[in-house]
Amino acid sequence: MNKIDNNSINYNKVFKIVSENSESSLKKGEIISILFAGVGGQGIILGSAVLARAAINAGYDVKVSEVHGMSQRGGSVEGSVRFGKKVFSPTIDKADFIVALEKLEGLRYINQLEKCGFILINSYEIYPSSVSSKDVQYPVDIESRIKEITGNSLFINAVEIAKGFNQIKVSNIVMLGAFSNLLPFEDENWMDAIKESVPGKAIDLNIKAFLAGKNIIK
């Protein structure tokens, strides 16, 4: 599988710590908030549906906020999932986790990350329409900017992994697989969630994509 360039950090250990922290927060009755950020059409709604279903399967109350309509047409979009013992607001203030399906969108939404939150970024670039002249450039230093803002970040080349399945569309599920390392859910919670959320003939592909994401650092 793909190598991580941040060799100096032992992500196995990091994931274990974060996952344990999530578990103890949940035990205290706190709510975990996840923000999905990306570009309209990247599969944020499906990604959040699978995560939400996994949270239900793990025994939590859950709420999801989706965006439909005008902003879907290639614009910057966000969606959120919150789970815990009891959830009230479906929308978030600060995110404990951000899952960004596109690099620039990861940076755009990072100010919503909780001080000790964690951000996973798909190192994939989709040029917005505003990058159309030499005055407006797609920033070349997104990775270093994000790392300067927070060390709690991990870049994943999910599109490359998805291409291995000849299905660039499943990069959202690859990202979710990687993210699953940060949450205290059982594997079967996730597998059932995928089966409940995608059409029958797509289940195998999505499970493979999920596992490829999950095993990214092993």
């Binding site: 309209g40 005008m70 047409r73 614009g75 910057s76 620039l104 940076l107 755009r108 505003s130 920033p139």
Partner: peptide
């Protein structure tokens, strides 16, 4: 302040005709 500096002035991504 540093987050503001590093994450503002990004190229906007409005919805577009496909």
């Amino acid at each position: 302040l540093s987050i503001k500096k590093l994450s503002t002035d990004l190229p906007p991504r409005p919805p577009v005709l496909c």
